[in-house]
């Protein structure tokens, strides 16, 4: 028990929550935007892998950090365009296409990585984003380290969440996007193109997913390695459901989830970790995601036209 209190009182624990949540925040917002417009994007896991690679390789080749973020976003947007093309105008199964995109993006990243570095056992490191020093705030004892020792990319994640909420709920574009996911016929009746709205959402959302992946290589681990995304994309899909398709709630979900993840890592080092095998701790994130889905199932506010292709002229 004292060990638990020690963990909760340590500034590094709270800093870890923000760090662990960051990639999830980007990718969850990306998925949320897609789903709000009516498209389930199961390409998320693979797009995160490719984003992690694209960001890393840009820096490895000597590019500046923000260029890496932009390249990751662009690459993710390209996979999003492919996903969108197949599922929106062609109306193919979002399940099958999404899983196909995950396989394609993952294999493409691994193939390109092996081409760039044929025989490497130790993945080369890059100089990642450094913690952003915020005047005054970062210097407050304890709080400065706990809450204000993050990289610019983490703050960008919070900004993206705010921006997503703002656009979805306060702009005509957001209204049209949400309507495309709820009642596409009504959108067409207004003279707007459901196809264009959904394509835009999937392209933008996929770009954000890739930035989430890029956070892993450019801010968290400083190198690219196989299986580094490790199911984070699937967890983000659960977070969207947990957040009831609302940006603010999804952000809270990501932070809560990251809190449990940071806690389990630290509990492994305590007396509990001597008794309980480490695999049990590692299961916690996945089990929590399943529990979150179960908890939210009763009051699901799922977009009514999610996974329903729209073909103009159909009634």
């Amino acid at each position: 028990m004292t060990e638990l209190i020690d963990i909760l009182l340590s500034a590094s624990f709270w800093a870890a929550i923000l760090r662990i949540a960051s990639p999830l925040i980007f990718a969850t917002m990306g998925e949320l935007i897609c789903e709000r417009a009516g498209v389930l994007n199961l390409g998320i896991e693979g797009i995160m892998v490719f984003g992690a690679f694209a960001g890393w390789v840009t820096i490895y080749a000597g590019g500046p950090l923000w260029l890496g973020v932009a390249v990751a976003f662009g690459a993710g947007a390209l996979f999003g365009a492919l996903h969108g093309l197949l599922t929106i105008p062609f109306g193919l199964s979002q399940h099958v296409v999404g899983l196909g995109i995950t396989m394609l993006a993952t294999a493409a990243a691994y193939y390109a990585y092996r081409l760039a570095l044929p025989e490497v056992t130790n993945p080369p490191r890059i100089t990642p984003f450094q913690p952003l020093h915020i005047p005054v705030l970062s210097d407050i004892p304890w709080f400065g380290q706990a809450l204000f020792s993050q990289t610019a990319l983490t703050w960008a994640g919070f900004a993206v969440t705010g921006l997503t909420a703002l656009i979805l709920y306060r702009t005509p574009l957001g209204l049209a996007l949400r309507a495309a996911g709820e009642n596409p016929q009504a959108v067409e009746a207004q003279g707007l193109s459901v196809t264009a709205l959904r394509m835009g959402a999937v392209i933008t959302g996929s770009g954000l997913m890739a930035v989430g992946g890029a956070f892993l290589t450019m801010s968290a681990f400083s190198s690219f390695f196989f299986e580094m995304v490790n199911g984070r994309g699937w967890i983000c899909i659960a977070l969207v459901v947990f957040g009831a398709w609302k940006p603010g709630k999804a952000l809270l979900g990501a932070l809560l989830f990251a809190g449990f993840d940071a806690l389990q890592i630290r509990l492994q080092q305590t007396g509990l970790g001597q008794v309980v095998p480490y695999q049990v701790f590692l299961m916690i994130p996945y089990l929590l995601s399943i529990l979150a889905l179960i908890a939210m199932s009763r009051r699901a506010e799922v977009p009514a036209a999610l996974m329903t292709p729209f073909n103009r002229g159909d009634r």
Binding site: W234, Q279, M283, Y286, S297, R298
Partner: peptide, 27 residues
């Protein structure tokens, strides 16, 4: 059962169980 009883999407639950099972086997 989660799908039929509670409407929990089976795509995500079956995907997540892959990771849980891998850890169980590893243990």
């Amino acid at each position: 059962i989660l799908k039929t009883r509670l409407g929990v999407d089976e795509v995500v639950t079956t995907l997540l169980l892959n990771f849980v099972m891998a850890l169980l086997i590893s243990y």
